[in-house]
Write a protein that binds this DNA or RNA. Sequence first.
DNA 1: GAGCGCCGGTGACTTGGTCACAGACCGTGA
DNA 2: TCACGGTCTGTGACCAAGTCACCGGCGCTC
Lengths: 224, 224
Amino acid sequence: MSLPAVDWLRGFPALGELPETERSSLAGTAMAMSLPAGASVFAPDQPCGMFILVCSGTVRVFQLDPAGNEIVLYRLGPGSICILTTLALLASDSYSAFAVTESPVEAVGLPAATFHDLMGRSSQFRSFVFNAQAARMADLMAVIQNVAFASIETRLASRLLALAADGRELSITHAQLAAEIGSAREVVSRHLKTFERRGWVSLGRGRVELRNAAPLRAAARSAH
Amino acid sequence: MSLPAVDWLRGFPALGELPETERSSLAGTAMAMSLPAGASVFAPDQPCGMFILVCSGTVRVFQLDPAGNEIVLYRLGPGSICILTTLALLASDSYSAFAVTESPVEAVGLPAATFHDLMGRSSQFRSFVFNAQAARMADLMAVIQNVAFASIETRLASRLLALAADGRELSITHAQLAAEIGSAREVVSRHLKTFERRGWVSLGRGRVELRNAAPLRAAARSAH
DNA sequence: GAGCGCCGGTGACTTGGTCACAGACCGTGA
DNA sequence: TCACGGTCTGTGACCAAGTCACCGGCGCTC
């Protein structure tokens, strides 16, 4: 089903400047996708044949090893594209990463043919795609820095702040937080307990409330 | 200085199939680069304005944090391109990564204009670039898996095997090995000592000799 | 309200990282 | 050839993080 271009293109300023011919090529073949929370967007055994642009909601991209260890690589929000499906389209390579929607997601899918066509015709489109690549690459490099050299306290504090965004309360279990930072539940539990003793957060079953962001921010910044 | 196309294009099978017009565009503007061992190819404060193809030698790409911790992200060998300079060309983003030659390197640099032109004109060239992107992305994801979940023994054994390639002897210090796997020198020293006690390697100052690859391979494969 | 599954808390232990320091090796120059 | 300085390696003590085993509490359903 094709869509009126104006609706969703608004969410992608970089694409709004495409010449009219390319814009109509986009609009003519784009498919609306509507996914519930918890849907799999991409998995090693289930490659995705489309170029996906996220309009609303978020997608969590993570790795899972044979032992069941999980670590979050990055998140895609409105205005982002899924670079792993893009690379899979272009490079015929498969990944060990998973992508799952965290909330209901509205997205637009471009068929591979349209995608290839635009990559050839529009330098704006190319730079849009490459900017996304570069951002994801930077995300991965930041994850490497963190898991290799940052303390759990630093990583936990900064992840709490990032997940809370503006809200002061998180609905998340200790096990999920452990998967966020690539650590173990017990370790996260213990650190959260000390955060609570210091009055930085208060805890409930499946719930973390930030009570004092300032020291959390300081802990997130501290090198060690 | 331009080069005879046949010389260096041979190292890039994916580019050999370009149509004649694109091939001559490549050959006409390519610059030969010759770097000694230990030269900086790319650094956060010293971005590189060219698209670089490595013809011979290897380049080590690594991250360095303010505390001086180092971790190797991946290596570029003959036939690879430097994706970070590519992304920097295309995405106007800067990275916290460093790239240093490990041996004398012969390379070919394409000016940004030629690169952009080819990206627009040749789907083969695009897929060459995207394949490289995908490979680097996979490298980073493997690094994340390793630092997050693999034991030092596993990481050290597999790195020794990878660095040795066919040769049985490595010229490398414990500190360099620690930087390879993102750990600390003392930790590497201790594990190497136990490897030696088990007869897997023998050690000398700045030297590791592999004496029994089979158990090393087993250790490298073991999940834990 | 009994049972069940998920969630959080905790102790004991292992592994890995940090710190401080000592001794060994090796090139250089007196 | 010998002393010196820098680099490299080895080690003990300690701390931080990950693992394992287990428990009790919470909330849901039947």
